[in-house]
Every structure is written in C-alpha cells, then in structure tokens.
C-alpha cells in the first residue's frame, strides 16, 4: 500500500470521528440549554471549550450567543473544526484513497456529505437542529457500519481503525482536559446542581450516559466518571479501550508486514505505564498532569505512526 494511501485512510477516519464528536457536542449543549432553568448563552462557552473551538470563535465574533455558537460549531467554513469542515475533509481524503475503499463505504461517505451539505446550506433553525444533527450522526454511523461490514481485514482496515481510535482517544482526553477540575474530589460539592450539569456534559459528550448508568448506577460520582472514561475497558470511548484497540491494530500491521515498528513500543508504553493501574493511581499522579501526559503521548504516537509507515516521506 502507498504511504499516501495509509495517510489518507488514517485522516479520513480521524475526520469522520471528529465530525461525530463535534455533532455530539452540539447536541449536548442544546440539551443542557433546554433542560436548565435560567441557563444563559455563556454556557455555550463551556461547550465551545470542550470542543477546542472557543478561541477560534472569539476571534471571529464579538460576543457569545447560542445561535452563533451553534452555527460556528456546525457549519461555519471559517472554523476548521466545524462538523461540516470535518465531513468535507473526510470526503477529500476519501476521494484520495477511493480505490482502497469499498463502493459501500465511499457511497455512504459521499451520501452523508451530500446530505449534510444540503441540510446546512443555510443557517439551521433551532427547530431543524435535532433532525439535522440526527441525520449527520446517522450518516456517519452508516459509514462505520459499511466499513465494518464490507472492508477486507487487511492493512487498509488497520489504518482506518488506527485513525478512528487515535482521534477518539484524543477527543476523550481533550474533554477531560477541559473539564478535569469538576472531577477533582477536593473541589466538588457532590450533588450540587452545577456539578451534575457538568458531569452530564462530560458523559453526553462521549455518548456515555446510558453506559455509565448501566455499570455504575444512576448517581454520578466524579471518581466513577473518571474511572469510566479513563480506565473502563468496556467503554468504547475510554482511553484504555481506545489504546488497546490501537495496540491491536498496530499489532495486526506488524504481523502482516512481518516487522515491529517503534510505534508498537510506544503504544505498549502508554498502555502499561498509564492505563493499567486503578483510578487512585491516576489521582495520586494528579488528574490534570495525567491527562496532559496522555495527550502528549498520543500526539507522539501519531507522529511515530506517520513516520513508521511513511505517510509523507
């Protein structure tokens, strides 16, 4: 496989994952805005921050309003992280590697692009927002389903998965990075409304409310949430889960190519050293420092993969 193709696959799936995460974040913000009394536009700042889009927003806008925030996150072309920018970038990469994709995957991706484009041609009204986000999430899920159901389990699939899980781990870590303070035991007044909302934001932003309830019961506790998002191997968006998947897929590559690359050692280090202990160890290390460290290691792993498999040179 061409290094360029591996690169294109990796980024196609990273952007796809990113689009989904951004869409989910808007849904979360909207839900909070609708379910809280006396909520204000300022709460969207927290959502923008969670998505890493606050700085860009402030540079392009004078003040924060709900409509402008939603527009920025959903469809603004000047925002490289908007849902629409992500979907376009995913499609651009897919065009580049089209020969590596099955027809089903390409058509699913082109389909969600066409649909999303027509739905976001103009500003999306509050009334149409749920249907629009729903259609986009359904569309990206279809791409994932087609990938799962029609792609050969070869190096093409491995690079697609590596992109997916690296982006997902990064996304979960970033949400924790922005919100870590509400999970610190010392600072949280357990049970207060403020914290409940914050926790709900975190869990919804990773589609984890149902899963959390199932495993930990209906009452959220910051320690459990941290455990759930960082170490729970059953939770498909936890750092531990994503890292294991990264290790698996790098392992498949190593065995089909017949050589172990440095990225394999790096993912092993990340998993063994940071994600194999219990949550107390994480808090002892310092939650914030821990997240920072993991983010750094993930970025480093990404670069190593690009290098190992000759994405660029």
């Amino acid at each position: 496989m061409l290094g360029k193709t591996a690169n294109g696959l990796y980024w196609m799936y990273r952007y796809l994952e990113r689009a989904e995460n951004a869409a989910r974040l808007i849904e979360t913000g909207q839900r909070i805005a609708l379910t809280r009394l006396g909520s204000s536009d300022e709460e969207w700042r927290s959502i923008l921050q969670t998505g890493g889009m606050a700085e860009g927003y402030d540079a392009a806008h004078e003040r924060l309003t709900k409509d402008a925030a939603i527009n920025w996150m959903l469809r603004d072309k000047d925002n490289p992280a908007s849902v629409m920018s992500d979907i376009s970038a995913a499609r651009q990469n897919a065009r580049m590697v089209r020969a590596a994709l099955t027809e089903e995957v390409w058509e699913a991706l082109n389909g969600v692009y066409m649909r999303a484009q027509s739905l976001t041609q103009r500003k999306v009204s509050e009334r149409d927002l749920p249907a629009t986000l729903g259609a986009i999430r359904q569309g990206t899920a279809l791409v994932r389903g087609a990938t799962h159901g029609t792609m050969m389990r070869n190096d093409i699939y491995d690079f697609a998965r590596i992109g997916t899980f690296l982006e997902r781990a990064d996304n979960t870590a970033r949400i924790l990075d922005v919100k870590y303070y509400v999970l610190l035991p010392s600072l949280s007044a357990v049970g207060s409304t403020v914290d409940n909302v914050q926790w709900e934001t975190i869990l919804s932003a990773v589609s984890g409310r149902g899963g959390f309830r199932m495993e930990y019961g209906p009452i959220a506790d910051p320690r459990d949430i941290s455990q759930f998002l960082i170490l729970d191997k059953r939770m498909p968006r936890s750092l531990a889960f994503c890292t294991r998947k990264l290790r698996d897929n790098l392992g498949y590559l190593a065995s089909s190519y017949g050589s172990r690359m440095p990225s394999m050692a790096k993912v092993g280090h990340l998993e063994r050293t940071y994600l194999s202990h219990d949550i107390d160890a994480v808090f002892d290390f310092g939650l914030h420092e821990f997240i920072q460290k993991v983010l750094m290691l993930l970025a480093d792993l990404g670069q190593q993969i690009e290098h190992d498999y000759r994405f660029y040179e």
Binding site: L2, K4, D155, L253
Partner: peptide
C-alpha cells in the same frame, strides 16, 4: 493497481519506485 502522484515516486537503484508503507 496503485494510483500514484509524483511525490509518491522517486528513482531508487535505477528504477522508478513508489513509497509504500513498507518502503
């Protein structure tokens, strides 16, 4: 077959070669 662009190719050992994930 592979779809290549100029920057995927270079001359290696007197042959035109493409940069793959394995060299």
């Amino acid at each position: 077959v592979e779809l290549v662009e100029g920057h995927d190719l270079r001359v290696v050992d007197g042959r035109v070669a493409m940069r793959t994930t394995q060299g």
